[in-house]
């Protein structure tokens, strides 16, 4: 069935943030130059979303709670019968804010936390966040707002994830998600963050044994190892069911695709047209033809894997995904990130 509109919209309402996580994927030149659209422009984006009326909107950033009028945006979306989730670093969830979120009828929050101890968490987040996050989570529980947590896992906190899962389940997290970091943005070329595969495997199994399905560990490295190849990149696929609106109004398909020169502003043609334009991203996802991939038995299944990671590592969309286990490659060029 042909989709007439996106069902899921991510709105990166700001890229301002009060923290400085050492793996942040937004920490690169595209993101640094633009902070947040004007209030009028944000209202315009809001109206476009209301016109489309997706099933779910995820308000994200940056730190969306730094945005003036955030409660109004949530409430306005809720009036349209849209499921609204807000992702936050959790440091601004004081009683007043949580009370306002409750009044705005937000459906769910996703809160980031990176360690079970003050020292570890604050070192990774680059600020005094730990106590504020814990208080914030308690406030959410007190006000009866549904929340889940997200922990980006690097070599720094992998050995802490079991302790963290216990802590978060105890506070009342609906689900606890651990995800291996993506090597881009601030994490680009930081080999010290890389987690040995044996360790990933150990912790995935251990969490699986100790907790129910509400505690999840996702690792691209392990997925690739199991499949034998990276997953096929869906960039530019017809009929994508999602759209991501950046803080400047540009509409993209996934966060990684911001590495490509693709101008697709919501202010030029509206959200529906900008979403339809996403199929033009296909030009960055051609059929791969190179010596490495052409002879590979997995070519049909993966078509070279993630095009954005190939591009930022090799400055070419015709190279294989740098995580490909079939052919270990050396990065030829360090690109702008």
């Amino acid at each position: 069935m042909k989709l007439e509109k996106p069902l899921l919209i991510f709105w990166d309402i700001t890229n301002r943030c009060n923290l400085d996580c050492n793996f942040c994927m937004w920490n690169w030149d595209y993101a640094k130059n633009i902070r947040e659209a004007s209030r009028l422009k944000k209202e315009e984006i809001l109206n476009e979303i209301k016109l489309i009326k997706p099933l779910k909107v995820v308000l994200t950033g940056g730190e969306p709670l730094l945005t003036q009028g955030i409660f109004h945006y949530i409430y306005d979306l809720k009036k349209e019968d849209i499921f609204v989730e807000l992702t936050t670093n959790g440091t601004l969830l004081n009683d007043y804010t949580v009370s306002n979120l409750k009044d705005a009828c937000v459906d769910k929050l996703q809160v980031s936390i990176l360690g079970s101890t003050r020292e570890l968490n604050n070192r990774i987040m680059g600020g005094e966040a730990f106590d504020l996050i814990l208080t914030g989570l308690e406030n959410l529980a007190k006000h009866g707002i549904r929340f889940k947590t997200k922990t980006t896992v690097t070599s720094e906190n992998i050995d802490d994830i079991e302790n963290l899962a216990v802590l978060l389940k105890d506070i009342g997290a609906e689900s606890v998600n651990f995800s291996e970091f993506i090597p881009m943005g601030a994490a680009y070329l930081k080999s010290e963050l890389t987690i040995p595969t044996s360790k990933l495997k150990y912790w995935k199994e251990r969490l699986g044994q100790k907790f129910d399905k509400t505690v999840e560990f996702s690792s691209t490295t392990l997925d690739i190892k199991e499949l034998g190849h990276p997953r096929k990149c869906s960039l530019g696929a017809d009929n994508s069911y999602l759209a991501q609106i950046l803080w400047d109004g540009n509409v993209i398909q996934c966060a990684l695709s911001t590495v490509f020169p693709f101008s697709n502003s919501i202010f030029n043609s509206g959200l529906k047209k900008a979403w339809e334009n996403l199929s033009q991203l296909k030009r960055f996802n051609p059929e791969i033809e190179n010596k490495t991939c052409s002879a590979c038995r997995y070519l049909k299944e993966c078509n070279g894997g993630c095009r954005a990671l190939a591009y930022i590592n090799f400055n070419s969309i015709h190279n294989p995904d740098p995580r490909c286990p079939e052919k270990k490659q050396k990065s030829r060029k360090k690109v702008r990130i």
Binding site: M1, L8, L55, K56, S175, Y241
Partner: peptide, 17 residues
Amino acid sequence: DKIIMLNENSGDPFYLE
């Protein structure tokens, strides 16, 4: 005349006619 559906957690879309 359609039902549009989305899994809140996984984000998987479905449609019924």
